[in-house]
Design a protein around this nucleic acid. Structure first.
Lengths: 136, 136
DNA sequence: ATAAACCTGTGAGCCGCTCACAGGTCAACA
DNA sequence: TGTTGACCTGTGAGCGGCTCACAGGTTTAT
């Protein structure tokens, strides 16, 4: 299979396939004309990569899993260790997004009662600089 | 003030100040030795930038606000328009993080009852590939 | 004078793609 | 046989928002 075929088969962009190939997650054959050819094993591998990505693993995590896999004969401990780490990060980012959303909502509702104003010597936009939740 | 002084005063890294300067958000004076010197107006400006960042504006948004500000004599409409857009994105990302977190939690709890297994011909890590929520 | 501490600007690197672009391949038609 | 045109290819660069590495300049203490 060439890049477009494998990309279409797994419903992702050719650029993503090429990216994974570039960083060494996929290692296709090269033909005489320089084109890359992907075998069924590469499809399995790519499917695995996509599953792992959707579970929050980074591409470096995946690289680590794929590298240690044939060595230790069981990538599972690595997988368990890594998802623990990524889950903590995800929860932190979830929390951050939550707080940001609250701040933004509060700002927009507060701004509804405030008029537009031109900048002054020490204020660029009184909406932003005067937003109360910034003083916390 | 030189870069370290302004950075310390607003409790951010020199690299961040330099980054904002590099992209044109800050325009300090240059002295004979090539050092950049920041005036009080730059401190006001930087304080504004940080406030806007903490409200979810991108640096490009801020650039737009700062550029249109002296032209139209009131950046507020721009600010109102932009935060609307960023709030929608934030809510989307919040939702995405929520779903990812749920998926990861479900995976880890499901994996507690599963043993480690070596890879097979068509499976790299049965934990990941066999995770039920992937099939949705 | 000199040594050490500190500070400077510039360039490159990070992640995970996405886009731009010049050129190659291949089937259909003249 | 030539040629048009659609499609496909690989490579390099770009995105945001910083962060890091590094070579060299400045300041302070001796």
């Amino acid at each position: 299979m060439r890049v477009k075929q494998i990309a279409d088969a797994l419903d992702i962009s050719v650029d993503t396939v090429r990216y994974y190939t570039r960083i060494g997650l996929l290692v296709p054959n090269r033909s005489h004309n320089g084109y890359k050819y992907y075998r069924p094993a590469d499809v399995t591998r790519l499917r695995f990569i996509l599953s792992a990505r959707s579970l929050g693993f980074s591409v470096n995590d995946i690289k680590e899993i794929l590298v240690t896999s044939p060595q230790t004969n069981a990538p599972c401990p690595t997988v368990r260790r890594l998802i623990e780490k990524r889950l903590k990060e995800t929860e932190q980012r979830y929390q951050d997004m939550h707080e940001l959303r609250e701040r933004m909502r509060l700002a927009t509702s507060e701004w509804q009662n405030k008029p537009d104003q031109p900048p002054t010597a020490d204020t660029i936009c009184h909406l932003i600089e005067g937003f109360t939740a910034l003083k916390s």
